[in-house]
């Protein structure tokens, strides 16, 4: 059997992190092909339901990426809202039997292609260690 390849849904804000992922491409940085990006205008648009939806449908991990706190958010404070939601969601996930490490929050600016690639690498490794999502195993 081939090695387990986790599937990640990455919610990226339009201004920083989506552009950061583009930057990784422009610089031809190579990282594991595990994530599928969903563009939101702001990380603060993240309805907790989106994350649950992703896990429900078989995602092994979810990344939420936005502009750096405290000052980079294109909409002033959306990243703080995202941070609060992710912290709460981690607790909810734990109660549901999903390891909270499967949900990750990162601040990635438009110039941080390297960081985007690094986060992808790290997250993939971590999920490989955790194995497939418990929702898929049951």
């Amino acid at each position: 059997m081939s090695e387990f390849q986790p599937k990640i849904v990455a919610f990226c804000c339009n201004w920083c992190s989506y552009a950061g992922a583009d930057q990784a491409g422009l610089r031809r940085l190579q990282y594991p092909p595990t994530a599928r990006i969903v563009r939101l205008m702001c990380s603060g648009r993240l309805d907790p339901v989106f994350v649950l939806e992703a896990f429900k449908h078989g995602a092994d991990g979810v990344l939420v990426a936005g502009c750096h706190t405290p000052t980079d958010c294109h909409y002033t404070s959306g990243n703080f809202k995202a941070e609060r939601r992710v912290l709460l969601l981690k607790k909810v996930l734990e109660q549901m039997g999903i390891e909270p490490e499967r949900l990750r929050l990162e601040w990635i600016s438009a110039s941080e292609g390297e960081k985007f690639a690094r986060v992808m690498e790290e997250m993939t490794q971590q999920l490989k260690q955790l194995g497939p999502s418990p929702l898929k195993r049951s």
Partner: peptide
């Protein structure tokens, strides 16, 4: 960027998982 648009995109991505 309605809830339905985003959620169906997520579901679409994960079809077949």
């Amino acid at each position: 960027f309605t809830d339905e648009q985003i959620r169906s995109q997520v579901r679409g991505i994960l079809v077949g998982v």
